[in-house]
Write a protein that binds this DNA or RNA. Sequence first.
RNA 1: CGGGGCGUAGCGCAGCCCGGUCAGCGCGCCUGCCUUGGGCGCAGGAGGCCGGCGGUUCAAAUCCGCCCGCCCCGACCA
Length: 594
Amino acid sequence: MGLLRFSCYSIRFYRIGGNMYWSQFFIPTLRETPADAEVPSHQLMLRAGYIRQLAAGIYSYLPLAQRSMLKAQAVIREEMERIGAQEFYLPALHPGEVWMSSGRWEVMGPNMFRLKDRAGRDMCLGMTHEEIFTTIACGELRSYRQLPQIWYQIQCKFRDEPRPKSGLLRVRQFTMKDSYSFDVDAAGLDRSYDKHYQAYCRIFERCGLRYAVVEAHSGSMGGSQSHEFMVRSDAGEDLVVSCGCGYAANMERAQSLLDPIEDAEPQGAEPEPVHTPGQKTIAEVSAFLQADPTRQIKSLVYLADSKPVLILLRGDHSLNEAKLSSHIGTSVFRPATAEEILEALGADAGSLGPVGVSRMTILADQALRDRRNLICGANRNDYHLVGATPGVHFQPQWGDFRLVNEGETCPACRREKLQIYKALEIGHIFKLGTKYSESLRAHVLTHDGREVPIVMGSYGIGVERILASAIELFHDADGIVWPVSLAPFHVVVTPVNFALEDQRQAAENIYRELSGAGIDVLLDDRNERPGVKFKDADLIGVPFRITIGPKLLKENKVELYSRATRKMEPVPLEGILQRVREVIAESMPQARHS
RNA sequence: CGGGGCGUAGCGCAGCCCGGUCAGCGCGCCUGCCUUGGGCGCAGGAGGCCGGCGGUUCAAAUCCGCCCGCCCCGACCA
């Protein structure tokens, strides 16, 4: 096949060699949607013959999918090379000890595939490659003179997801472009991070995606700053909080402004216990005491590193566990059980509060700051306290612990209301800092001879998610509508009746002419009725179709059809290459970022 | 890991409740004829140890038990 004629670096970024006759190319389309598929990208990739499932969250990529994967990867390679990144290829099979030295052997928990070799040594399948790249850096990078470095690879990752779902959107084996930057100081990291930010914008723009860049929570990666690249989609599992002013953040990280609340003077100096039999939820207490939920304190007990913590929120707010995790500096926490709550506070959930609590940490959301005369549980079943004032009757550590709600005020422009939508994460960039270089002892000497840990960044793109999100964004009732840059073929040549000599000759001539000019062409030589061929071409999403029919052919013309616009235009045979070049060029997504 | 659902031909499904001419339908596939501008028509045909194991029974796709797999919701998720 033509692909063999090119080394991978000589693939033009929008073209893959190898052109095919449909009757011989493996495109197992399905007339009906397989029952297991729910989201559009999954349904269409199955129906259009791109993928087949092997097991839960494990898919085989058929030739069409592989061609689109290579197209996406070619765009990625070009843009990574543009920022000076160097391509590696690292093992997927790792010795456990590397992960033990970074501490993530435990942190990754059951999400990591683990196995033993014949000698009984712990091994695992890589979920990501901070440890491995850092190990190389550790052995080889000694001097600031060698920095900065940006290293990357496009390689498969393994994660034993608790719940694989939605076709290629959440899987257990997938392809990731991961890169890592190595700098001598924070300013260098800022530059490497910014390069990646720009490169990612260019990659996703060239892939034709509509995306947003949001502030993100860095999670178990550690590190100080992080952005996610998100595609708005109902198939997504993340929530993005955004504002018309440009503010956008992951739900885990998002903040908002609240309308001020004026509290009445408390009746007395001390909180007053009131009998609230059977009133446990905020709503029940609210109704019983005729007090708005905003006047109540919601008290939650968590066990963080096995120690109980009391968390206070405004009655109508919800806990944001990502923010809690950042504040307490551990991801090892969980809600306390009923027994643990009773032991810690002497009452059951529904009657909990901070007043008089001394033996445990009290964390309070800043929405409660400067409030007074509030209602909270009394730590005595069926009793609440009225008139509690933070800072007076209890002394919490203040922080941001709440989930924002739609319609609250944007923290950036301070004027508009926030929107919340579902989104797919297609890329994520992190400033790691020295977390891995310290634990794995990757140090360099500075200009003035000091030994410092390398300052690192880590950057990922889910390649399959580029394809899946493109399909989520661009499809219709008939099938996929690929951006030209990702389509497995640019053009399908469809003679209405391939058995007729004049149509066959015209088709083969066009096929040869376009292929020779570097265009990816599929020739539909099947002995099928035209309707079948049109339906299949629409389904697999080829951006342009050249239809060869008897009437126009008599005038030495063929028809150029655009999958996206569904417009048809007659084109003279002798001008077809030129016209196809034009329409491909016109519809090829361009990077807006410089 | 909790809750729910499903496993019968390549795909989509019926049959199961009420055991016994139930191995069935549509699409796809093969052969022939026909047809060729949006999944055409006619005729013939191939294909399934009914997810697995065990039990009940004269008899099990059907009832019971265990296991496995897959999907959905939740938990979880760099």
